[in-house]
Design a binder for these strands. Structure first.
Length: 811
DNA sequence: ATTAGGG
DNA sequence: CCCTAAT
C-alpha cells in the first residue's frame, strides 16, 4: 500500500515485522483456551490488538486484509521512513455515556464501574484535548485529510511520532496540515470512540455487543514523556527483522483504555492475540479498577506507556499504510519480548517474585495512582508464565473469564500490560474501585488461557514460591564460612560451598558470598551498629584478615611459608630471594631477610608493625578492628593480622590442637605458635616494606606469656621468637583478670581461668620494653580507641619517615 | 555455571 | 536475598 523507503538508508534501522506477528483476528470471542496465560505481554498485546483493530478499521480494510497488507509490507521489507505518528487510540465503544455502568452492572461490578466511569470521564476530557487528535486520525473521516497531506514524518532520524497530542508538537516537520487535520478529527473522535470502536473494530461482533453490552474500551494513546530510552530497537534490529519503524528512543505513550465490559473487547483482544500469536500471557483484565476484597487488589488500568516509535514514511504513502505501520510496529514491539514494567510510587519494581503486598500494593493502602505500568523492552521473552505453566486455579479464573466479563479480563490485561499512568497523564489512570471487579485467583492463570491473568496474582504466586525465606546464619555457620574462606580464599564460592556447606541446600554459593560480604561489612562497623545475632569478634577479625583474600594470596602465603620455614630450619637459605608475590606491588627483594631488615628499611616509607596484646577479653580484637577502620579511613594502607594464623600449614595444626583434636606437649605447641609467626615473617616484611601498616592481634609476647604461664621457662619460650620482626609499637590492653572475667567467656572454669590469666599478666609485665604502651582497657571503649589511635598515628608517622625495622629480642 | 557487584 | 552483567 504504501511505498516504503528504506529506513536504513536514512541510517535508521529498519525493522520488519514478523509476518506472523499479526494473526488474523478472526476469533472474536475469547475462548479461554485461546487466552494464553501471559503476563504483561498479553496485556500489552491486547491493547495493541485493540489498537490494531481500530486501525484496520479505519483503513477500512477488513482485518484480514489488513493482515495481508502487513505481510505485504513486511515482505517487501520495506523500509520506509516514516515517522510514526500516531497511534490510534482505540476508541472503545461505549454505549451511552456510561458504558461502564451498563457493562458493569451485568457483571456485578457496578460499583467498580462507577468509579471507573468517573475516571474515564476524565480521560475523555483528555481525549477531547489535543490527545483527541490522534484518535481522530483513526476515524475514517479523517483519513482523507491525512492522505492528502501525506503524512510524512520526516526522514530525519529521531523524529518521533507521538500518538498523543503532544506528539504533534514534537513532530515539527509535519506539523502542518496533517496534524491539524488530525486534531480536528480528534475531537470528534473522542466522542465517538465508543461507537467507533465497537463498530469499526469489530464490525461483525460489534452489532450485538454494542447494543447489548456496552463496553468501554476506548483507549487513547498519549504521548508521555519519554522517560526511557531503550535500545531495544537496535537490539531487536539485529536479531529480528522488523518493520520499518524505528524504535530508537522509545517513549512511552500511555494508552488509555476504557474498560471494556463487553465481550467484544475481549474477543478482540483475544483475536488479536491469536493473530499475533503472541500469547504467553493470559489475558488480563482490562483496565480495571481495583478493589480488593480479601486480599485481592483490584486494579484498573486506564492507559499504559508504550515505547516511543520512530517511523519514516514517504509522503506518498497512504494514511492507511501509515497506520498499518504503526500497528505493526506496536505489535512487533509487544511480540518482541517486551514486558510490562511496573512502578510503584515512582519506584521501579523489578522483582517479579515479590508479592503485591510486599511491593506495597495492597487493597487498603494502595493508591492506584501510584502505580505505573509501562512496556519495556525486554531481551527476554516473557518469562513469567512459563514458570508456572499449569494453572491451578482455574476456579476463579473461569468464573471470571466466563462470566464475566471480558471486561474484567481486559482490565486485568491492561494492568499487566501496562498501564500506566504516565506522569503526565497517567497518574489517575488507575483508580480504586470500591469493589473488586475481578476476583483474581492467585492461582494461576497459567496454563490455560485463563482469560486473564492478573499479573498480580501471578506475582503473588511466584513470589510466594520463589522468594526464599530468610535464614540468618548462625555463629556456627559463620565460623564454618570463615574457616572455608581462610582455606580457599574469596572468589571461589563454589568451592567454599562444597567445602563447608555441602549439606546445606539452602545455602547457595551466592548466599555464602553474600554472607561474606555482609560479614566484612559487619566487621568494619562498630559493635553498636551491628544487628542480629552477634558474631564473635574473633570471627570478625578473621574475616578482616581474610577479606579480599584470593587464591593467589593464599598461594603466596603458602609459598612464603615454605620459604620462611626453610629459612627457619636452615639459616643458610635466608638469602633465598623473596619470590615476587603475585601482586605487582610486591617487588622482588634480592636481599636476604636479615640484611633487608636492617639496612634497606630506612630507604623508603614503610608501614608500621602494630601489635595489640592483652589478656583474653581485654578487647584486643575489637580494638584491632577499630584501628583498622581508623587507618583505612585515613587512606593508609593497612591490614589486620592475627596469630595464630590458622590458614597456614602450621596454623592448621594449631587449630587442631586448640580444638582439642590433638594433644601436644606444651613445648611443642609453643614451637608451633612460634613457627606460625615465622611462616608469616617474610610476608610481613614485604607488607611493611611496601608501605602497608600491619595491625597484629597477638604476637610473640602472647606466645611467651602464655607458655611461660603454663610453666615453661621464659627464656626458652623467647628463643624461637628471636629474629622475628620487632613491633614498632605494642599496645597492651591492661585489664585485671577479674575484670576480664566479668566480661564473660571464661565459662565454668572461671576461677581457673582467672588464676591462669593472672600468671599470664605477670609474664606480660616482664616482657615489657620501650615499644610498649600500656592502655587502660578498663575505660570506655571509645577512650581506649582514642588512645590507641594517638599512639599508632605517631608510630605510623615515624615509620613513614624511615624508622628502621628491628628484630625481636635479637640483641 | 560461576563470579562479582549493585540493589 | 535478589538480580544482572560479565565471564
Amino acid at each position: 500500500m504504501v511505498s516504503h523507503t528504506c529506513v536504513e538508508e536514512v541510517g535508521y534501522k529498519s525493522y520488519l515485522l514478523p509476518a506472523n506477528a499479526r494473526a488474523p483476528r478472526s476469533a472474536r470471542r475469547r475462548s479461554i483456551e485461546k487466552t494464553i496465560s501471559e503476563d504483561d505481554n498479553m496485556c500489552a498485546i491486547d491493547l495493541l490488538a485493540t489498537v490494531a483493530g481500530h486501525l484496520s478499521f479505519e483503513s477500512g480494510s477488513s482485518i484480514d486484509k489488513l493482515i495481508e497488507d502487513h505481510r505485504v509490507v513486511t515482505q517487501k521489507s520495506v523500509k520506509e521512513e516514516f515517522l510514526e505518528e500516531e497511534k490510534p487510540l482505540m476508541p472503545v465503544a461505549l454505549s451511552g455515556e456510561d458504558p461502564y455502568q451498563g457493562s458493569l452492572s451485568p457483571c456485578g461490578f457496578s460499583s467498580v464501574i462507577t468509579g471507573k466511569v468517573e475516571n474515564e470521564a476524565d480521560g475523555f476530557s483528555y481525549s477531547g484535548g489535543s490527545d483527541a487528535c490522534q484518535v481522530g486520525s483513526f476515524s475514517e473521516d479523517i483519513k482523507p485529510d491525512i492522505d492528502g497531506d501525506a503524512v510524512v514524518l520526516d526522514a530525519r532520524p529521531n523524529v518521533v511520532v507521538s500518538l498523543g497530542s503532544s506528539s504533534r508538537t514534537e513532530v515539527p516537520s509535519n506539523g502542518n496540515c496533517a496534524s491539524h487535520g488530525v486534531r480536528d478529527d480528534v475531537n470528534l473522535f473522542s466522542r465517538d470512540d465508543d461507537e467507533n470502536f465497537s463498530g469499526y473494530i469489530h464490525p461483525r461482533v460489534t452489532k450485538n455487543s454494542l447494543r447489548t453490552v456496552p463496553r468501554i474500551g476506548d483507549r487513547r494513546i498519549r504521548k508521555i514523556l519519554a522517560s526511557r530510552h531503550w535500545k531495544g530497537g537496535s537490539r531487536h534490529a539485529d536479531t529480528k527483522p522488523w518493520r520499518n519503524y524505528y524504535l530508537h528512543h522509545q517513549r512511552s505513550y500511555p494508552i488509555k483504555k476504557r474498560k471494556n465490559f463487553d465481550h467484544i473487547s475481549d474477543s478482540i483482544t483475544d483475536d488479536y492475540r491469536l493473530r499475533t500469536k503472541m500469547h504467553r500471557g493470559s489475558r488480563k483484565g482490562q483496565g480495571a479498577s481495583f478493589v480488593a476484597s480479601n486480599s485481592h487488589v483490584k486494579l484498573r488500568i486506564k492507559s499504559f506507556r508504550v515505547p516511543e516509535l520512530f517511523i519514516e514514511i514517504p509522503e506518498t504513502a497512504t494514511v492507511g499504510s501509515l497506520k498499518r505501520m504503526v500497528m505493526e510496529a506496536v505489535s512487533t514491539l509487544l511480540s518482541d519480548g517486551h514486558r510490562v514494567g511496573l512502578m510503584v510510587h515512582g519506584k521501579k519494581v523489578r522483582d517479579d517474585n515479590k508479592t503485591l503486598h510486599q511491593t506495597g500494593i495492597s487493597q487498603d493502602n494502595t493508591h492506584l495512582d501510584s502505580l505505573d505500568f509501562s512496556l519495556e523492552p525486554s531481551s527476554e521473552l516473557p518469562q513469567l508464565l512459563t514458570s508456572h505453566p499449569s494453572g491451578h486455579a482455574s476456579g476463579e479464573l473461569l468464573p471470571v473469564c466466563q462470566a464475566a466479563n471480558m471486561d474484567n479480563v481486559l482490565e486485568s490485561d491492561h494492568h499487566d500490560s501496562a498501564l500506566f499512568p504516565s506522569d503526565s497523564l497517567g497518574k489517575n489512570k488507575v483508580t480504586e474501585d470500591s469493589k473488586a471487579v475481578i476476583p483474581v485467583a492467585l492461582t494461576e492463570l497459567a496454563s490455560r488461557p485463563p482469560c486473564r491473568k492478573l499479573k498480580r496474582s501471578e506475582q503473588q504466586q511466584q513470589q510466594a514460591a520463589q522468594r526464599r525465606i530468610r535464614r540468618p546464619f548462625s555463629v556456627a555457620e559463620v565460623e564454618a564460612l570463615v574457616q572455608a574462606v581462610e582455606k580457599l580464599g574469596t572468589g571461589r564460592w563454589r568451592d567454599v560451598k562444597l567445602c563447608a556447606f555441602e549439606d546445606a541446600d539452602h545455602r547457595t554459593y551466592v548466599d555464602l558470598k553474600d554472607k561474606w560480604k555482609t560479614l566484612v561489612h559487619t566487621a568494619k562497623i562498630s559493635p553498636q551498629q551491628r544487628r542480629g545475632e552477634p558474631v564473635p569478634q574473633e570471627l570478625l577479625n578473621r574475616v578482616l584478615v581474610n577479606k579480599g583474600m584470593n587464591q593467589i594470596c593464599s598461594f603466596s602465603s603458602v609459598q612464603l611459608f615454605s620459604r620462611s620455614f626453610r629459612a627457619l630450619a636452615s639459616p643458610r637459605s635466608l638469602n633465598y630471594p623473596v619470590q615476587s608475590l603475585n601482586r605487582s606491588s610486591v617487588r622482588m627483594e634480592s636481599s636476604n631477610f636479615s640484611s633487608g631488615v636492617r639496612t634497606e628499611s630506612s630507604v623508603k616509607p614503610r608501614g608500621a608493625l602494630i601489635v595489640l596484646e592483652g589478656l583474653d577479653r581485654s578487647g584486643k580484637s575489637t580494638q584491632c578492628a577499630k584501628l583498622l577502620s581508623f587507618l583505612e579511613g585515613l587512606g593508609h594502607p593497612t591490614e589486620l593480622w592475627r596469630f595464630p594464623d590458622r590458614e597456614t600449614s602450621v596454623g592448621k595444626m594449631i587449630s587442631a590442637y586448640l580444638s582439642n583434636k590433638s594433644q601436644l606437649d606444651d613445648h611443642t605447641i609453643h614451637l608451633l605458635f612460634s613457627a606460625n609467626r615465622w611462616e608469616k615473617r617474610s610476608l610481613m616484611e614485604e607488607k611493611l616494606k611496601t608501605g602497608t601498616t600491619l595491625i597484629v592481634d597477638r604476637y610473640s609476647y602472647s606466645g611467651v606469656a602464655f607458655s611461660s604461664a603454663k610453666g615453661l621457662d621464659i627464656d626458652w619460650c623467647k628463643a624461637p621468637e628471636i629474629g622475628l620482626l620487632a613491633p614498632d609499637s605494642v599496645l597492651y590492653l591492661d585489664i585485671s583478670p577479674e575484670r576480664a572475667a566479668e566480661r564473660g567467656g571464661y565459662g565454668d572454669e572461671r576461677y581457673e581461668r582467672v588464676e591462669f590469666q593472672k600468671k599470664v599478666a605477670d609474664f606480660y609485665q616482664t616482657l615489657r620494653d620501650s615499644s610498649w604502651k600500656i592502655i587502660n582497657a578498663g575505660e570506655a571503649m571509645e577512650e581506649v580507641e582514642k588512645k590507641i589511635q594517638e599512639v599508632v598515628l605517631d608510630k605510623v608517622k615515624e615509620c613513614t619517615k624511615g624508622k628502621p625495622l628491628s628484630l625481636l629480642w635479637s640483641s
